[in-house]
Design a protein around this nucleic acid. Structure first.
Lengths: 108, 108
DNA sequence: CGGTATCCTCGATGATACTG
DNA sequence: CAGTATCATCGAGGATACCG
């Protein structure tokens, strides 16, 4: 498969815009590992503010990458789950992990 | 291959930080297609300022993704080429292209 | 041609307090 | 618990002019 840029809008660009944010790919990585609750994610994402986490989750929900499930309990419980579209991002993460492991920082 | 986050620093994070910038992945996509001169890249990257292109190219050079080659001619000629490390980013782009094509904008 | 130098803008994020 | 509201900050990038 080649990488022409003639296609509009560029599929690579859309993919990067979907997962490439400062926090977005970290959120997704945690979800691939099974994390799915708000505070659980916030604890695992060191330094993220609730505001930013909330904004990114809504973004992912709007892009149909994840689904938000509210359980009517007290205290309230909300779970986020990957859709099929979200699950299929996994190969991208695996490929990135392979490259990142092979070429450690500053390794020529 | 799984996606534990126990590895430090996270290889996925390093990969995203290497290629995930607003312009960086577009520069690389053009280089995968053979573009390798400064003004050529600037023309193909609609809207990029020479300042930003210069900054990103230096960044990629420092990360050993590309090599800068100066030819002592007039007018000056400079060519950028992917290293092996840079070439091996291609599978990531291919995987992203596949996903981006399958899941078009807003497609559930 | 292949950049650098300056100045400026703006959106993404942080910090924090509060709430159903 | 799972957010929202408000205000402040900060750095990436844009515009533009100039240079060897």
């Amino acid at each position: 498969m080649t990488l022409e840029q003639s296609e509009y809008p560029c599929p690579i660009e859309r993919t990067i815009q979907t997962i490439g944010g400062k926090w977005t790919f970290l959120i997704l990585r945690n979800m691939f590992q099974g994390e799915n609750r708000f505070n659980q994610l916030q604890r695992n994402l060191d330094g993220i503010s609730p505001r930013t986490l909330s904004l990114r989750l809504k973004e992912l929900e709007q892009a149909n990458i994840i689904i938000r499930n509210v359980f009517p309990e007290t205290p309230p419980r909300v779970e986020y789950h990957l859709t099929e579209k979200g699950e299929e991002l996994r190969p991208i993460f695996v490929t990135m992990k392979t490259w990142g492991n092979k070429w450690e920082i500053m390794k020529p």
